[in-house]
């Protein structure tokens, strides 16, 4: 049944698919994860701070973003960021924002909502006595967080954080709505140019599966290794 298929098209376009498409996908995934975890951790700290206004803002933020479809948020930010940029800098025209920057900002802000929930659970999983011990030794709030609570919270939550990253890796393909050439976008362009839809989409599926599956196996291994002995 594969007789009429031309799998050679994959070989011919491999450099384009990976050096352009996959490079973009991985860069977006990694940078949005790093940004999302940092922002998410700050949101989690705000949520747990006991200061009503801060915790209300953080809760509102993650509740709103988690209730919106990602595609909508991507669109929204793509068209909105130039105007926000204009407003902030006071320029006379909407700021020119590249597609990559726009996608990165969107994914960072969107993922932060999810990472904040994960980090909140992680921080709450650390017994209160640990914080008391830190305070009793004369550490300040930030020192206590930096050296006592967050390292343990990260370690406990590493498998969940990585699982969220795998989801993010797949979700980055949604940037196709901005006509950005991520891995799926590159495959899709080749497919339509050469009329090889089945081959290219099949190949894209295999690649996404292979990477996601390999990562989830890695998560399993980490889970076993990082459990802290108490």
């Amino acid at each position: 049944m594969f007789a009429s298929f031309d799998f050679d098209v994959i070989w011919r376009t491999l450099p384009y698919l990976f050096l352009e498409g996959m490079r973009f996908t991985l860069m977006l995934t990694v940078l949005a994860t790093v940004g999302g975890v940092i922002l998410g951790t700050l949101l989690a700290l705000m949520r747990l701070s006991g200061i009503k206004a801060l915790s209300w803002i953080a809760a509102g933020y993650s509740n709103i973003l988690r209730s919106l479809p990602l595609v909508l948020v991507i669109f929204w930010f793509y068209f909105l960021i130039p105007y926000i940029g204009q407003w902030i800098t006071g320029a006379s025209r909407p700021m020119a924002v590249g597609a990559f920057t726009s996608a990165l900002v969107t994914f960072t802000l969107f993922e932060a909502a999810y990472f904040s929930e994960i980090m909140r659970a992680g921080i709450q999983s650390i017994p209160r006595g640990q914080q008391s011990a830190g305070y009793a030794l004369g550490l300040t709030y930030w020192q206590n967080m930096r050296y006592v609570v967050l390292p343990q919270a990260f370690r406990n939550m590493l498998p969940v954080l990585l699982t969220q990253t795998i989801i993010l890796f797949q979700d980055t393909s949604l940037v196709y709505v901005l006509s950005i050439t991520d891995f799926l976008g590159a495959a899709s362009k080749v497919a339509q140019r050469d009329g090889r839809l089945v081959e290219m989409y099949l190949f894209a599926a295999v690649v996404y599966f292979a990477i996601s599956f390999a990562l989830s196996r890695l998560v399993k291994r980490l889970q076993a290794r990082t459990a802290i002995a108490r």
Binding site: Q130, A133, Q152
Partner: peptide
Amino acid sequence: LPKLRVRAGMVFQNFELFPH
């Protein structure tokens, strides 16, 4: 407070060593 607490060492029921 953090500065004052340094002068009073505290030992807890559940030890509270930092496990990491």
